[in-house]
Computed example of a mutant assay.
Amino acid sequence: MPTIDQTIEVAVPISTAYDQWTQFEEFPHFMGGVEEVRQVTDTLTHWRTSIGGVEREFDAQIIDQHPDQRVAWRSVDGPAHEGVVTFEAVDAGTTRVHVETRWEPDSLVEKAGAAVGADDLQVKADLKRFKEFVENRGTETGAWRGDV
């Protein structure tokens, strides 16, 4: 399973970065290829994606979530994938966001993309757009502070 490992610093307090990340339905605003995310329950999300011409719908389960620290998930159906996003305060107004995800490419296009690192570049670009999204707003669009 390929592993993607990316980190970025965002110029917002840790609670703002974390709270925005918990707003899964906002992901299409900064994640390339994500068409829709629906929060089904506190711990279940339904995704619709279109990446490199490959369209998918799948569910993902939040398996570990602690405010201002981490959000971890794993797929319930579809190609196997899992990951964790961690949040670390660099100072009062800056947060380090670290994404580590593992996934099993299914199609030939996905396997070729993983082989040349396209998936890693996609996550890097998504994090840059997340940074722009949350910094330009200056505040989160909502929050879920539950503990899983």
Rank of each mutant, 00 (worst) to 15 (best):
residue 49 T to D: 04
residue 11 A to H: 12
residue 108 L to V: 07
residue 31 M to T: 11
residue 6 Q to I: 07
residue 132 E to C: 03
residue 29 H to E: 14
residue 13 P to C: 03
residue 131 K to S: 15
residue 112 A to K: 06
residue 111 K to W: 00
residue 8 I to G: 07
residue 41 T to G: 05
residue 145 R to H: 14
residue 118 A to L: 08
residue 39 Q to F: 03
residue 131 K to H: 15
residue 57 E to V: 06
residue 113 G to T: 00
residue 13 P to W: 03
residue 64 D to A: 12
residue 72 A to W: 00
residue 93 G to R: 12
residue 121 L to I: 06
residue 15 S to H: 15
residue 67 P to V: 13
residue 135 E to Q: 11
residue 9 E to W: 02
residue 73 W to S: 02
residue 101 T to Q: 15
residue 1 M to L: 10
residue 31 M to S: 04
residue 119 D to S: 08
residue 75 S to Q: 00
residue 5 D to R: 04
residue 88 E to W: 05
residue 60 A to L: 12
residue 3 T to F: 06
residue 12 V to D: 05
residue 23 Q to G: 11
residue 134 V to G: 06
residue 23 Q to Y: 13
residue 48 R to K: 15
residue 95 T to P: 03
residue 75 S to A: 10
residue 55 E to D: 15
residue 107 S to E: 01
residue 140 E to H: 14
residue 9 E to I: 10
residue 5 D to Q: 07
residue 72 A to M: 01
residue 55 E to S: 14
residue 57 E to W: 07
residue 127 L to E: 10
residue 80 A to M: 07
residue 138 G to H: 11
residue 119 D to P: 07
residue 10 V to R: 12
residue 121 L to M: 05
residue 135 E to F: 07
residue 46 H to L: 05
residue 32 G to V: 09
residue 10 V to L: 03
residue 94 T to Q: 01
residue 68 D to Y: 09
residue 147 D to V: 13
residue 99 V to G: 01
residue 131 K to V: 14
residue 113 G to W: 01
residue 143 A to C: 03
residue 96 R to M: 13
residue 66 H to G: 13
residue 72 A to T: 00
residue 109 V to R: 06
residue 126 D to N: 14
residue 141 T to G: 14
residue 128 K to P: 00
residue 113 G to R: 00
residue 1 M to R: 08
residue 88 E to Q: 13
residue 97 V to E: 06
residue 63 I to Q: 04
residue 89 A to L: 08
residue 102 R to N: 09
residue 111 K to M: 01
residue 27 F to T: 06
residue 136 N to E: 14
residue 140 E to W: 11
residue 118 A to W: 02
residue 14 I to H: 11
residue 84 V to G: 04
